[in-house]
């Protein structure tokens, strides 16, 4: 899908489609480029400030490009009591970035998620849509190093 087809999909001046528009634009680019934020505003017929306000309100939206691999660390309660903070810190230490950041070589992005809803296999992380559950600091160290070697 291209940006153009996204804009074609939604009728003009329908402010209630704002979030769906942004979701689709992000689907295309992996993030929300500035030019698209301005264009979405014109398309939906709302001030750009409102689009920016919406884009910065919801966790899903990103204003900077994502890394090639997106690691989402679940920080739900079940994961927390089973040590997800250790998992996160291990990843942060290995990749040298903090949650919400992307490595300089644009290979990895770490994000935290409030709850993935896979509490039964806590602590859990998702790399590029693939679930890894029941992790320990050691296993996640191994896992991330496998990913790093792959590239």
């Amino acid at each position: 899908m291209s940006s153009e087809s996204v804009y074609k999909k939604y009728p003009k001046n329908e402010a209630s489609n704002l979030i769906a528009l942004l979701q689709d634009i992000q689907e295309v680019h992996g993030y929300l480029p500035e030019d698209d934020i301005i264009r979405v505003a014109k398309h939906a017929g709302v001030p750009t400030s409102r689009v920016f306000g919406v884009a910065t309100f919801y966790n899903q939206f990103r204003l900077t490009p994502l890394g090639k691999h997106v690691i989402r660390v679940c920080r739900g309660t079940a994961c927390h009591v089973k040590g997800s903070l250790d998992i996160l810190q291990t990843l942060e230490a290995e990749l040298g970035i903090k949650a919400g950041e992307t490595t300089r070589d644009l290979q990895f992005t770490i994000e935290t998620v409030a709850c993935i809803g896979a509490c039964s296999i806590a602590p859990v992380i998702v790399i590029d849509g693939k679930y890894y559950g029941g992790l320990t600091s050691k296993s996640v160290y191994k896992l991330i190093n496998e990913y790093m070697k792959k590239d």
Binding site: P47, T48, S49, F52, F57
Partner: peptide, 20 residues
């Protein structure tokens, strides 16, 4: 009806700011 500024970010880090 100008909309030059709006709330951005969320929670404790909310601000009133122009787009971008």
């Amino acid at each position: 009806n100008v909309g030059a500024i709006d709330f951005v970010n969320r929670g404790f880090y909310s601000q009133v700011s122009p787009a971008m």
